[in-house]
C-alpha cells in the first residue's frame, strides 16, 4: 500500500515518464551500447570479436587521430572565444527598440537558419583562391590570392571564420534576452551618477548576464567540438589532414572503412573530452559565482 506522499510522487513521475523513456531509449542506451561496441573489432555488418581496450591503444598511437584531436582543440580555441565575444557586442549594440536595431537583429540572425550545405557553398565562392570573391578583390589591388583552403596553416582559420559567421545568431539572441532582463533602474541610477559606459558594462551588465555568458561558452564548446560538415564539404579534411576534426575521423573510419569498433572508441574519447571541458567550465564558473556572493 502506497502512502499518500509516495502516490503523489509517483503521479509526478508519470508526467516525466514519456520523456524519460525516450531519453533512455534514444540517448542513454546508444551511449552504453557505443561504449560496449568500442571494446570489439566489428564492421557494419556484424562479425564482432572482443578485443578489450585494443581500439583505444590503437587510437593513442594513430598519428591521424592525434592530429584530428589537435585540430579540434585548435578549432575550439579559435571559435569559442569569438562566438562568446562578438555576439555579446552585437547584442549590446542592438539592444534597443528601434527599427534599425530590429533590422540588424534579423540580418545577423539570418545566417543561422542556413544549412551547412548552403553555408559551405557560399564560402567556397568567397574563399577559393582561383576566382573566389576575396581573390578577385585582392587581385584587383595587385596582390596574389591567399590559399585559404589549400594552406595547412590557414585552413582551420578559414573554417573558424565560416563557423563564426554561421553560428553567431543564437548566442546573440541569448545575450539579447539576458540583457532585457537587467532592471533599467540600475542603468538610470548609474546615469544619474555620470558612470561611464565601460564602467556600466563591467560593473552592471556583465555581472548581470554572467550566467548567460557561461551558458553560451559551454554550449559553443559542446557544439564546436563536434565540427564536421564544413571540412567534410569544403576540404575533406585536407590539406595534409590539417582540417580533419575528430568527428570527420569517426565518420571516415566508421562509414568508409566500416571499422565501427574503432570509430566507437574514437567517439567515446570525444565524449570524454566534451564532458571534461564542460564540467571544468561549470565548476570554475560555479566557484567564481560562489566567491562573488
Amino acid at each position: 500500500m502506497m502512502s499518500p506522499k509516495a502516490r503523489r510522487e509517483f503521479g509526478n513521475f508519470l508526467f516525466v515518464a514519456p520523456y524519460l523513456c525516450v531519453f533512455l531509449w534514444l540517448l542513454i542506451w546508444p551511449l552504453i551500447s557505443g561504449m560496449g561496441l568500442s571494446l570489439f573489432k566489428a564492421d557494419l555488418f556484424g562479425g564482432a570479436s572482443f578485443v578489450g581496450f585494443e581500439n583505444y591503444s590503437r587510437l593513442l598511437q594513430d598519428p591521424v587521430f592525434l592530429q584530428a584531436v589537435g585540430n579540434t582543440f585548435y578549432f575550439v580555441a579559435l571559435t569559442v572565444p569569438a562566438l562568446a565575444i562578438i555576439p555579446l557586442f552585437l547584442a549590446l549594440m542592438l539592444n534597443r527598440a528601434t527599427r534599425t536595431a530590429a533590422f540588424f537583429r534579423g540580418v545577423f540572425f539570418s545566417s543561422s537558419v542556413l544549412s551547412v550545405t548552403i553555408v559551405t557553398l557560399i564560402w567556397r565562392m568567397v574563399l577559393m583562391s582561383d576566382g573566389g570573391f576575396v581573390a578577385n578583390i585582392i587581385g584587383f589591388f595587385g596582390f596574389d590570392p591567399i590559399p585559404f583552403l589549400s594552406d595547412p596553416n590557414l585552413v582551420m582559420i578559414s573554417m573558424s571564420i565560416i563557423t563564426v559567421w554561421w553560428c553567431l545568431g543564437l548566442p546573440m539572441m541569448l545575450y539579447l534576452s539576458a540583457l532585457q532582463q537587467v532592471p533599467q533602474d540600475i542603468y538610470e541610477a548609474a546615469a544619474l551618477d555620470n558612470t561611464p559606459w565601460w564602467k556600466q558594462l563591467t560593473h552592471i551588465t556583465l555581472p548581470a548576464i554572467s550566467r548567460t555568458v557561461v551558458l553560451v561558452v559551454i554550449m559553443q564548446c559542446v557544439l564546436q567540438f563536434q565540427l564536421f560538415g564544413q571540412p567534410q564539404l569544403i576540404t575533406q579534411g585536407g590539406p595534409n589532414g590539417a582540417s580533419r576534426p575528430i568527428v570527420l575521423f569517426i565518420f571516415e573510419v566508421g562509414f568508409r572503412r566500416w571499422d565501427i569498433g574503432y570509430a566507437a572508441a574514437a567517439s567515446q574519447i570525444l565524449f570524454a573530452i566534451i564532458l571534461m571541458v564542460t564540467l571544468a567550465q561549470y565548476f570554475v564558473a560555479s566557484r567564481r559565482e560562489g566567491r562573488g556572493r
Binding site: 567556397r124 577559393m128 583562391s129 582561383d130 590570392p145 589549400s150
Partner: peptide, 13 residues
C-alpha cells in the same frame, strides 16, 4: 599546372 582549383573550378576552367 593550375594549383588552387577544386573539381567544379577545374572543369569550368
Amino acid at each position: 599546372t593550375t594549383r588552387d582549383q577544386d573539381y567544379p573550378a577545374a572543369t569550368q576552367g
